[in-house]
């Protein structure tokens, strides 16, 4: 793997994480349990999709700057949408193509973010696990060697700090709430816990970007994440689960069945009406 390939993959991974979770959260818009929380979660969705745009724009820039594909370079021939124009001009990849025209196996998001919304408890817990990770990640990424990624991380860190605060309070409210809300929280925990290990397991491109001090070593983020989760779980009267076998693969394109449904809905318009704008 060349350096540019690892950096492209890593940037796409960051973008995909934010886009897919943002899209999942946006599915609540108009369906939130109460107007105020509908707006709160929609705001978070917009923050995440905004982050995704920044990462996709950068990924597109890197892809367009990479040498044109002969099959071995950093610019795969077919993964990013329509084929090159017939006049032989180099194909310019855009952020929209990266979001709307890649297929499931090209997506590098972790499995956690693609899981279905379930009930409010599951949506909250998914956000909490991910925000706890993203807060720690962006804090370190902001000090990384790649200036663009560092700048996006620094800007986005302020947003995810709020996501973490908001979701932490909901985990506490539901965990330490009524019998029903406590049960729902525990059910959500049963469903989601097995996807949390992937947050701390580096894919090959992450190992490479970490070795180049572009991104943090994921194992160094893990203690911070565990500490935060334990602190919130204590207050929420939830027990921190024992170590179990963890599901991984999303970061390398091996997804659960849920991603396909997300993409079918999210990409429908661009697939049915290529290049459509409004």
């Amino acid at each position: 793997m060349t350096q540019s390939t690892a950096l492209i993959q890593y940037t796409l991974h960051l973008a995909d994480d934010s886009l897919i979770l943002g899209h999942r959260n946006s599915e609540w818009t108009g369906h939130g349990p109460i107007l105020e929380q509908d707006i709160a979660l929609s705001n978070i969705a917009l923050d995440l999709i905004g982050q995704a745009r920044n990462f996709y724009q950068y990924a597109a820039e890197l892809i367009n700057a990479a040498p044109v594909s002969n099959g071995t370079s950093g610019r795969p021939a077919s993964a990013y949408g329509p084929t090159a124009p017939s006049n032989g001009a180099p194909r310019q990849v855009t952020e929209d193509q990266l979001a709307y025209l890649r297929d499931g196996w090209d997506f590098r998001n972790c499995l956690l973010v693609e899981q279905g919304n379930g009930d409010w408890a599951k949506t909250i817990l998914r956000q909490f696990f991910f925000s706890a990770y993203q807060t720690a990640l962006y804090e370190k990424l902001a000090q990384g060697r790649d200036k663009t990624l560092a700048a996006i991380a620094a800007k986005s860190h302020k947003e995810v700090v709020y996501h973490l605060r908001w979701s932490s309070e909901w985990v506490i409210r539901l965990g330490d709430g009524t019998e029903e809300s406590h049960t729902r929280m525990n059910n959500a925990l049963d469903e989601l816990w097995k996807f949390t290990g992937e947050l701390h397991t580096a894919a090959p491109y992450e190992q490479e970007t970490a070795a180049k001090a572009i991104s943090p070593d994921l194992s160094t983020l893990c203690p911070q994440w565990e500490e935060k989760v334990k602190e919130v779980f204590d207050e929420a009267r939830l027990s921190y689960p024992p170590a179990v076998w963890m599901q991984t693969g999303g970061k390398e394109g091996r997804h659960t069945e849920h991603l396909g449904y997300v993409l079918a809905e999210m990409q429908f318009l661009q697939r049915a009406y290529p290049g459509c704008e409004w």
Partner: peptide, 20 residues
């Protein structure tokens, strides 16, 4: 005005509804 379960949530809801 808005609905919230307690003061903390009211401040956060206000942040999301009125200061975006």
């Amino acid at each position: 005005s808005l609905h919230a379960a307690d003061a903390q949530m009211a401040i956060e809801n206000a942040r999301d509804v009125y200061t975006r």
